[in-house]
Structure formats: C-alpha cells, structure tokens
C-alpha cells in the first residue's frame, strides 16, 4: 500500500481513529506521518489523570440527589470539602478517606481491583492486622463447622476465637495505656 500523502513511499504507519463512532483510516509513510504529527500515540496531548479523575467525581456529584449535601461534606480534620476534592482530585489528609467514605467507595471500585488492601502492612500494625486476619479466618471456619453440624470441632474453634479476642482486647488496652503515658 502506498502512502496516502506522497503516493511514493510504502505506507508503514496505519492509523485508525474512532471519534464518536466515526471511523477514519490513515495510511502513511513514516516521513509524512512525522510531518502530519500523527505519530503521537498518546491518548490525548495533555491527558491528566487528575483531571480525568476529577471529571468522574464531578459527574457523580451532578447525579447525586443530595447534590448540595454531598458538596458540603467536609473533612473535620483538615477542612477540605468534597466539592474542593472533586475539583483537584487530591485529598487533604488521611482523615479525608473516612469523611468522604460513602462517596469514595464507588469511585475506588471503578479505578481499582477492589476496595480492600491486601498488600504490605507497616511494621507497627503488623501484629494487629495479623490477628484480625486470623480472627476472620477462624470465624469462617466456625461457620462452616456449624453448618456441617460438627459441633465438637466448632466448640474448639469457638474457644480459640474467644482466646484471640481476649488477647486482642488486652493488646488494645496496652496500646491505650501507653498512649496515655505519652
């Protein structure tokens, strides 16, 4: 196939654009492609993740029945409002995640693979998180045993869960005591 522009060189660059369902094809040699600056394969010249993200958020705002209430949602810790967040796409502090949680969840679902962290845990919370994950596993097992009417095993699990819960409560208390000392 010859280049559509110069009709001399072989077309080595094939561009198919689909804009609002209207498809256009371009077959160019490299030289003409450079001239036409069609070599830019990025999605958009100035694509910004933040803007894109803020766009989604604003849409969410418009669709909301309690538009004004949502916009006025404010983080008690840093004072950022949800409306401000929608515009810049960035949060003010770690408390914002709690303050905007209801609005944030659908969004997280859309941009991530889930809404629960399954990765690395900082050293200072490792034991706590490990205990929680263990507790959840034990409870799952207990449910299964009860369903299968294996009550003896269930009783063992129940004791293990109680043990773990007591240990966790003590740990929590230790942490609080330490906090007060500081």
């Amino acid at each position: 196939m010859l280049c559509q522009e110069c009709q001399q060189n072989e077309a080595t660059i094939h561009i198919v654009k689909n804009i609002n369902g209207k498809q256009t094809e371009l077959h160019l040699c490299e030289k003409c492609a450079i001239k036409k600056e069609e070599l830019d394969f990025s999605f958009e010249p100035q694509f910004s993740l933040h803007q894109f993200f803020a766009g989604i958020l604003e849409q969410g705002l418009q669709n909301s029945r309690h538009e004004q209430d949502v916009a006025n949602l404010q983080c008690p810790s840093c004072g950022l409002t949800f409306a401000q967040f929608s515009q810049v796409g960035r949060l003010g502090c770690s408390e914002c995640y709690k303050a905007f949680e209801k609005r944030m969840k659908p969004l997280l679902r859309r941009i991530h693979a889930g809404t629960a962290h399954t990765g690395k845990v900082p050293l200072h919370v490792q034991s706590r998180v490990k205990q929680r994950r263990e507790l959840a596993q034990l409870k799952d097992k207990l449910k299964l045993k009860v369903e299968n009417e294996e009550f003896e095993e269930a009783a063992v699990l129940r004791d293990q869960i109680r043990d773990l819960e007591t240990r966790m409560q003590e740990g929590q208390k230790d942490l609080l005591d330490k906090g007060e000392e500081n």
Partner: peptide, 30 residues
C-alpha cells in the same frame, strides 16, 4: 521503606492500606 519506618510512622488504614493524597495511589502506593 522498612528503614524509613524505623524512624517514621506511616498513615495506614487496615482496609485501605497506605493512605495517599490521590486515591489513584491508595492501598499499596505502588
């Protein structure tokens, strides 16, 4: 990361992981 953590304490939430300014980095921050 571990070395820094010897000195600093990170903003972390058990459900959401490492808390970041932009929600597109939330979780692992990776």
């Amino acid at each position: 990361d571990d070395q820094m953590e010897n000195i600093l304490r990170y903003a972390f939430d058990e459900r959401y992981g490492y808390l970041t300014a932009c929600p597109t980095n939330l979780g692992t921050g990776l």
